[in-house]
């Protein structure tokens, strides 16, 4: 299962003031707030963590459809920078997810999957015809495979997992 999210940092700075009182407490666990406080670029870490949570939320909808606003329950357990990619491990309702994020030209791109090996099988689409399944989640029009779509500011990404016939 896959979920993705993009954050255009230029737009995020205009749209949201994460420094406002109470903001971080609603979104981030204590250990995530520690990561933010200790970061040299706090702005980047706030939106990096946020994009990881959004990606996991989307991936989780494929396992168990549960709409709602529960960012604080999506816990980023670890976050490490390796070879230019931020790798994360995330927990939600007892499920473990693996995230991979990159920051290019002030845009954060994140993908989250449940099977770690799927991170090596990501398909990127510039254009893809897709429809919505019974829960309103996107699937490819041709093979009806789950895909994830994210759009923010200057960035738009459509991703899927490489499988037979896809």
């Amino acid at each position: 299962m896959i979920g993705n999210d993009v954050v255009d940092l230029v737009l995020a700075r205009k749209e949201s003031n994460w420094k406002r009182k109470g903001y971080l407490d609603k979104l981030f666990t204590a250990s995530e707030q520690d990561l933010i406080q200790n970061a040299t670029n706090q702005d980047e870490v706030v939106w990096l963590l946020w994009s990881i949570k959004e990606s996991v939320y989307k991936a989780y909808q494929r396992i168990h459809y549960q709409q709602g606003f529960y960012p604080i329950k999506i816990a980023v357990l670890s976050l490490n920078l390796q070879d230019g990619k931020f790798r994360s491990v995330i927990e939600l309702f007892g499920n473990i997810f693996y995230g991979e994020s990159q920051i290019v030209d002030q845009i954060i791109f994140t993908i989250a999957v449940q099977n770690k090996g799927d991170l090596d099988k990501i398909l990127y689409f510039d254009q893809l015809a897709y429809i919505k399944n019974e829960n309103g989640l996107p699937i490819s029009a041709d093979y009806k495979k789950p895909i994830s779509v994210s759009h923010h500011g200057r960035a738009k990404k459509i991703v899927g997992i490489k499988q037979n016939h896809f």
């Binding site: 995020a12 749209e15 949201s16 003031n17 406002r20 009182k21 109470g22 903001y23 609603k26 979104l27 946020w50 959004e54 606003f69 960012p71 923010h152």
Partner: peptide
């Protein structure tokens, strides 16, 4: 509404 702004609404 951008989900990050839902927090603003709640606050």
């Amino acid at each position: 509404i951008n989900s990050a702004n839902l927090v603003d609404i709640i606050l």
